[in-house]
Design a protein around this nucleic acid. Structure first.
Length: 413
RNA sequence: GGAGGGAUCGCAUAGUGGUCUAGUGCGGGCGCCUGCUAAGCGCUUACGCCGGGAAAUCGGCGUCGAGGGUUCGAAUCCCUCUCCCUCCGCCA
């Protein structure tokens, strides 16, 4: 959420940001509601002040005036409440402002590749896509998933399931032991409130699953739960930065991407992800973002799979982000770069929604923290990339060196 | 699922319709005193919004778990919700 005062005082900047993002938001309406709100607030305060003074007196005239005041105040309060609710709702639908340095652009075609590592291997045979490999090796069963739950579900069996578990453990261990993140186990069903904090609600409700009876929502990413870990807190001096990592299932309705990526298991309604999350002070958040991208890249390097890092242009930036880097891993079977991580600096956008602040020094004024999130990395796409890159001419798959301690085997055959 | 109890300032507690402009203790901060430490003494102690000011800051309003209601007036009475605790039932 943007600061209302900021919108008021920097209207042109906000409008330009929206244009750069190729997005819309009712800024005019917000400003007029805000003006109305402030006006009624000052008359309301005046009336309340009079009531306060009068309430000590017990004569009949004061009682009479008191009754008048009560009715006026009530009317104004009702009106103010309505305005406030409407204003908040509109405000929650305004996206974050991209940082100055973010490349301007309309679509993902305008994203900028900032670096790449490794080159796609030349195969002496035609590498198979994962859905064929998976079926031959009996480790990915898409039909079974469909039978159980419908389209966009799949079953991992035997070495496939083991490989996914090995990847998760390997990634967690790397981030915990080498990169300094604190491991967390999180609720994956959350309240609507938590999703407002992370910016998924109110705007993106149609991407989420929920249990209507209990009003629990299923998280689309661990970012939701992690954002709310310090909600409504003021972190004492010296606490920042905080690094957290979590492995959770993620649930997405994928309504908006119907018909996209229908082959294979690249895009499902349920998938596993290892998520990195940071709370930082505003001065260091961009540096922390660079480090986080580096931490995600560590995984690609250790798996010895070619990847590239892209900076997203303004038009492709997520709603809450001020700056984002995507990491794409090569998948020779489907012959494409798979997005396995998206690392974002959300600035104070989520912190304002979730009311997360820190005190820079003893006795100083509390200020909003910056929040950062990034996949480190997302399954099953890493699994796809592993089996497609490590496939051999005879259709077997070699296990990457770093995963051997986790799988206990060297080949999938 | 049932029955009961609770939520007040960083922590602990007082507060059953106006004197609450929320008291007290502890902790924290500043100062004084003091060979050092401890003790003692004095002052201080949250957050948000609106308005004034270049600013330090000043004025107002709101906030006693949250939201409604009753009343001239609510921490206090009523309703709804959330969370915590105790007991019973069920359960991995």
């Amino acid at each position: 959420m943007l600061d209302l005062k900021f919108i008021r005082e920097n209207t042109q900047k906000v409008l330009k940001a929206l244009e750069d993002r190729n997005d819309k938001a009712p800024i005019e309406e917000i400003l007029s509601l805000d003006a109305k709100r402030r006006q009624s607030l000052s008359s309301l305060e005046e009336l309340r002040r009079e009531r306060k003074n009068i309430s000590r007196k017990k004569d009949e005239d004061s009682r009479k005036r008191g009754r008048e005041l009560r009715d006026q105040i009530k009317t104004l309060e009702d009106e103010a409440r309505k305005n406030e609710a409407e204003l908040t709702d509109l405000l929650l639908r305004v996206p974050n402002i991209p940082q100055e340095s973010v490349p301007r652009g309309k679509t993902e075609a305008d994203n900028v590749t900032v670096r790449s590592h490794g080159t796609p291997a030349q195969f002496e045979f035609t590498p198979l896509p994962h859905w064929e490999l998976g079926q031959k090796l009996d480790i990915i069963d898409i039909e079974a998933g469909t039978k159980i739950s419908g389209s966009r579900f799949y079953v991992l069996k035997g070495a496939g399931a083991t490989l996914q578990r090995a990847l998760i453990d390997f990634m967690l261990d790397t981030h915990i032991r080498q990169n300094g993140y604190t491991e967390t186990y999180l609720p994956i069903m959350v309240r609507a409130e938590a999703l407002v904090g992370s910016s998924n609600l109110p705007k993106f409700a149609d991407n989420l699953y929920r249990d209507a009876e209990e009003d629990f929502w299923f998280i689309p990413t661990a970012e939701v739960a992690l954002t709310n870990l310090h909600r409504d807190e003021i972190l004492p001096p010296g606490k920042l930065p905080l690094y957290y990592v979590a492995h959770t299932p993620c649930f997405r309705r994928e309504k908006m991407s119907a018909g996209k990526d229908v082959r294979g298991i690249k895009r499902g309604h349920q998938f596993e992800k290892v998520e990195l999350y940071k709370f930082s002070d505003p001065e260091n958040s961009n540096q922390e973002l660079d480090k986080m991208v580096g931490n995600a890249e560590d995984i690609c390097r250790k798996l010895e799979i070619p990847y590239r890092v892209k900076e997203l242009c303004t038009g492709d930036l997520g709603f809450a982000s001020s700056r984002t880097y995507d990491i794409e891993m090569w998948a020779p079977g489907c012959n494409e770069w798979l997005e396995v991580s998206s690392c974002s600096n959300c600035g104070d956008f989520q912190a304002r929604r979730a009311n997360i602040r820190y005190r820079p020094s003893q006795g100083s004024r509390a200020d909003f923290v910056h929040t950062l999130n990034g996949s480190g990395l997302a399954l099953p796409r890493v699994l796809i990339s592993v089996i497609e890159n490590y496939q051999l001419p005879d259709g077997t798959v070699k296990i990457p060196e770093v995963l051997k301690p986790y799988t206990g085997t060297e080949y999938i055959r």
